[in-house]
């Protein structure tokens, strides 16, 4: 009898803990979304739920209308779109090569990719600046995109290679007997099976580019190449912070990553954890 009530208490404790985790992880999202939909004066009234005038998209209109938001958004979108496309394609080829061919320096290359995670980006940015300056690429899309490609590629290849490793080579062999070349095998046979791995890599590249502050802050020199993360930081640095529009701008900055994540969620979770559990 007491064992049963003990078990009940333990189950209750588990549920309570789970609720705490849920609140910890989700509350910030809910609060920023809710705040972005309140009239600005209501934000400062010290009330949680009182909303005279109801909820509104006013902050969003103000954010979009003001302070280069549209320009920054377009910059960010262009830069991260090109980065994602290039990184995914290159990682696909490189990852396939490292997974399927027994190349001579294979292990050294894989080690080099992983060790690139070791380098402090704040140190990398100094030579990057010199290179971009030397090639007259400061303040250009090209300069930023190149930087983001180089940043995203090593880990991207590692992710996709991990996925290819999990796809049986018997498919490759069958296709080779049917007369397909390596590139044909990759795109027609392996790619459809490894789509989740590709999705993860693409998403990772997108995240690197969309969320980057450090490299854009140095390579970009004018509003024509500035991205949303820089814009948010500028908003926050203002002497009189306009919380209404900033909250809305934050939601708009977060939204694309969440929408993409929602579409790819199952694959991303699988792809991210497969590298760590395969052993």
């Amino acid at each position: 009898m007491s064992g049963k009530s003990n078990e009940k208490i333990i189950t209750l404790g588990k549920y309570l803990l789970m609720v705490c985790y849920t609140i910890f992880i989700l509350a910030p999202f809910i609060w920023i979304l809710y705040s972005s939909l309140r009239w600005e004066p209501n934000l400062f009234a010290g009330e949680f739920l009182a909303n005279p005038g109801g909820l509104t998209f006013n902050n969003y209109f103000r954010a979009i209308a003001g302070a280069n938001f549209g320009e920054y958004f377009l910059n960010t979108l262009t830069i991260s779109f090109i980065t994602t496309a290039v990184v995914t394609l290159l990682a696909l080829l490189g990852g396939y090569s490292l997974s399927r061919f027994n190349l001579r320096f294979k292990n050294q290359i894989i080690m080099a990719m992983l060790s690139s995670q070791m380098f402090p980006h704040v140190l990398l940015i100094i030579p990057f600046f010199a290179v971009m300056s030397g090639f007259k690429l400061l303040d250009s899309y090209t300069g930023i995109v190149l930087t983001h490609i180089v940043l995203g590629l090593p880990f991207g290849i590692w992710l996709i290679k991990g996925y290819f490793d999990g796809v049986s080579t018997s498919l490759d062999d069958a296709a080779r007997i049917d007369g397909l070349g390596s590139v044909g095998i990759l795109f027609r046979v392996v790619l459809p099976v490894a789509a989740p791995g590709v999705a993860v890599t693409a998403f990772y590249a997108f995240m690197v580019s969309w969320g980057d502050y450090l490299f854009v802050s140095i390579i970009s020199q004018s509003s024509s190449t500035r991205t949303l993360t820089i814009g948010l930081d500028n908003f926050l640095g203002a002497t009189q912070i306009q919380w209404g529009p900033i909250n809305a701008a934050t939601v708009l900055t977060v939204l694309p990553t969440i929408v993409l994540f929602a579409f790819l969620q199952k694959w991303i979770v699988k792809g991210l954890t497969s590298g760590a559990t395969k052993g």
Binding site: M18, Y21, T22, I25, L26, P28, F29, W31, I32, S35, F203, M207, W210, G211, Y213, L228, T229, I230, L232, D233, F235, L236, W243, I246, N247, T250, T253, V254, T257, I258, F261, Q265, K266, I268, V269, L272
Partner: peptide, 25 residues
């Protein structure tokens, strides 16, 4: 919950900073 658990990880750092700044203003 498993499906939404990674949300904090996908948010750009700059946005996370605004969110935490706003919550602790």
């Amino acid at each position: 919950f498993k499906n939404v658990i990674m949300l904090p990880w996908v948010v750009p750092v700059a946005s996370m900073v605004v969110i935490f700044n706003w919550m602790t203003a």
